[in-house]
Nucleic acid binder design. Structure first.
Length: 305
DNA sequence: ACCCAGGCATTGG
DNA sequence: CCAATGCATGGG
């Protein structure tokens, strides 16, 4: 067991607690991620080796700096660099919020939310595979149910590292989920369909020389075209992947029930809207609709809206 | 028992 | 493009 340290300087403004909090759905721990007493922890999977990253803030919102500690099989300085890059990615450290805040200034309701959560970046998943599976598990179920099923899956099939009496989990690898049978997955409260979808996605992730992870160079439309070929992946899930796995700032899950409710409440006096109307309304936030969505969800999750 | 929840696939207008 | 339908499953 070895240890290494490094530091990351996110782009200001950056609020560490809010950003890491978004990763854990403001619940302390959510699946692979935890935020406890100002320390964000996540088990990284560096090509088969597990490394626990512990991150805390040693700066401020306007002069952000993160102290990162790695515990595990970190050997070379190249490992440390790769791990640091992954942490920076997970926390959306490089994102520039200022143009989004400019747009929010024209929108009083949104501006109230961005002021309250000033400096919150949009955290990202470690892989497209992870985003896809998490999205499938979140389809059409209450958030509490989604959280339970996601955690069960991670703790059953994810790589493990125990340190100081605490057990940490990384996200399951594709081959682990493909090795599980549909019956196995149903024991974790996945429906028959979701179990099939998840195995199909695992198969796609292992197939064709990483086609699934090779989406960064494609346009939003091309990515949607590609991932909706997968069974179980519709418009909502594709947009979710664009936002969480690829960091596309303008992706927008217009069919999302909670999002529709939030927009309907905040802007239309509770009147029901179709997905098309939501889509049209959302243009005011373009090309930062993903950020607007994240801030609205944060308002919902923390009880502000 | 009933209805809802941060959908998907399919079918029919 | 929009609406309706079957599917599935824990929570209120």
């Amino acid at each position: 067991m070895e240890m290494a340290e490094t530091s990351i300087k996110p782009r200001a403004p950056f609020d560490f607690e809010l950003t890491a909090g978004y990763h854990t759905y403001f619940r302390g721990r959510y699946g692979t991620d935890s935020l406890d007493q100002g320390v964000y922890r996540r088990l990284l999977d560096l090509g088969g080796r597990q490394v626990l990253a512990s991150v805390r803030s040693v700066g401020s919102i306007e002069a952000p700096e993160l102290a990162v500690e790695f515990l595990g099989e970190v050997v070379s300085s190249a490992d440390v660099a790769a791990a640091a890059q992954q942490v920076a990615w997970l926390l959306g450290a490089d994102q520039d919020l200022s143009p989004f805040y400019q747009i929010a200034r024209e929108d009083p309701a949104l501006c109230q939310v961005t002021s309250r959560f000033y400096g919150m970046h949009l955290p990202l998943t470690a892989s497209v595979f992870e985003a896809l599976v998490l999205a499938i598990l979140g389809q059409q179920v209450a958030t509490a149910v989604a959280r339970m099923v996601r955690t069960l899956l991670i703790e059953t099939y994810g790589p493990v590292l125990s340190l100081n009496g605490e057990t940490h989990y990384a996200f399951p690898r594709p081959h682990s989920l493909l090795a599980a049978t549909v019956e196995d997955l149903r024991l974790l409260k996945l429906s028959q369909r979701k179990a099939e979808y998840v195995r199909g996605i695992a198969e796609a992730a292992l197939d064709g020389a990483g086609r699934l992870e090779n989406l960064h160079g494609l346009s939003d439309e091309e990515v949607v075209e590609r991932v909706t070929q997968l069974l179980g992946v519709g418009h909502w899930t594709a947009q979710w992947v664009l936002v969480r796995a690829l960091g596309r700032t303008d992706a927008f899950p217009s069919g999302d029930l909670a999002l529709q409710r939030a927009i309907s409440q905040m802007y239309f006096d509770g009147e029901k809207l179709t997905a098309g109307q939501i889509e049209e309304f959302s243009r005011r936030w373009s090309p930062y609709r993903a950020y607007a969505t994240a801030y609205l969800f944060t308002a919902l999750r923390t009880g502000m809206a």
